[in-house]
């Protein structure tokens, strides 16, 4: 009896969190007049909404921009994060403690204070309306470094000493001993960074004005508030579906890692 009630509430939750997405996707495939109905079974299927939105905004180009920006950011955060994380965890060098304190300090600064000066820096460097401007300020992440550091602290020192005795260089140890061990933390940091970067919209709205360089969430947001949607629902839902689908697919593949990485990002607070 109690079990039935628990399942009932859980199923209610499933409808609450799942149904809107199903409605969005089905709605994007319905003829315009059908959309506002609650039903998930359209009178007919139609790709009209997709052709309509693709005809109005350069969504394919925005998709490409988003892929490029997210992948470059992710690769950079993982590469540099693992380098600094390894140095902090396993190497002794001048200024190590200071560096660690600076990284913790960086995580505590509310971004509101640096946002406008960062934008002005982009203007001064001439990086507005460029991929560089989109990527540069998120190329390294203090939080990513901390996650790598934590992971590397647990790597047995004996493993590193053994490689050192075998004549492996310090960089060689990182590349040949440490990186092959790092799959879990690379996946955690990588997924978190990719998702954050894919969904980021405030920074692109600041540094990019040129349509051909806009990222997907940015162009979809501007499409929504601009007159281009002509208050038609279908194209909006089609745009929202195309925007969310890549992350939903990634989530379906790496569901456990996504949840774990987000949970670990919550622990920092």
């Amino acid at each position: 009896m109690r079990k039935t009630i628990v399942y009932g509430v859980l199923a209610g939750g499933a409808i609450l969190f799942g149904y809107p997405f199903v409605w969005m996707m089905v709605g994007s495939l319905k003829p315009e007049l059908d959309i506002s109905s609650l039903s998930l079974l359209p009178s007919s299927w139609s790709l009209h909404s997709y052709t309509a939105v693709l005809g109005k905004i350069p969504l394919a180009r925005a998709f490409l921009n988003s892929v490029l920006v997210s992948l470059a950011t992710t690769a950079s955060v993982v590469l540099f994060g693992s380098m600094v994380g390894y140095a902090l965890a396993k190497l002794n060098f001048i200024g190590r403690k200071l560096l660690y304190v600076l990284i913790l300090f960086t995580m505590m600064i509310p971004f509101q204070i640096t946002l406008i000066p960062q934008y002005i820096l982009m203007v001064k460097l001439g990086w507005t309306d460029s991929y560089l401007g989109l990527v540069a300020p998120s190329m390294m992440s203090a939080f990513g470094i901390i996650l790598f550091r934590q992971f590397f602290m647990a790597v047995p020192q004996a493993l590193i000493e053994a490689a050192r005795i075998d004549g492996c260089s310090e960089v060689g140890i990182l590349v040949r001993v440490i990186w092959p061990l790092s799959r879990p933390v690379v996946l955690t940091v990588g997924l978190l960074t990719f998702m954050t970067s894919w969904n980021e919209v405030l920074w692109p709205m600041m540094v990019v004005r040129e349509r051909s360089l806009m990222t997907m969430p940015q162009i979809v947001a501007l499409f929504t508030i601009g007159g281009e949607a002509e208050s038609q629902l279908g194209p909006l839902l089609a745009a929202a579906t195309m925007l969310s689908l890549p992350v939903i697919v990634a989530y379906a593949l790496f569901q456990r890692q996504f949840i774990e990485s987000m949970a670990s990002s919550g622990v920092k607070g």
């Binding site: 939750g13 499933a14 969190f17 799942g18 809107p20 997405f21 409605w23 969005m24 709605g27 506002s36 998702m195 894919w198 969904n199 919209v201 997907m216 969430p217 979809v220 947001a221 929504t224 629902l233 909006l236 839902l237 745009a239 929202a240 579906t241 925007l243 969310s244 992350v247 939903i248 990634a250 989530y251 569901q255 996504f258 949840i259 987000m262």
Partner: peptide
């Protein structure tokens, strides 16, 4: 648990469009 987590990973812009409707 996985289903309840889904809105977390989806773009805020997409979620906003959805809720606008």
């Amino acid at each position: 648990r996985a289903l309840y987590f889904l809105p977390v990973v989806v773009s805020g812009v997409a979620v906003t469009i959805l809720w606008q409707q």
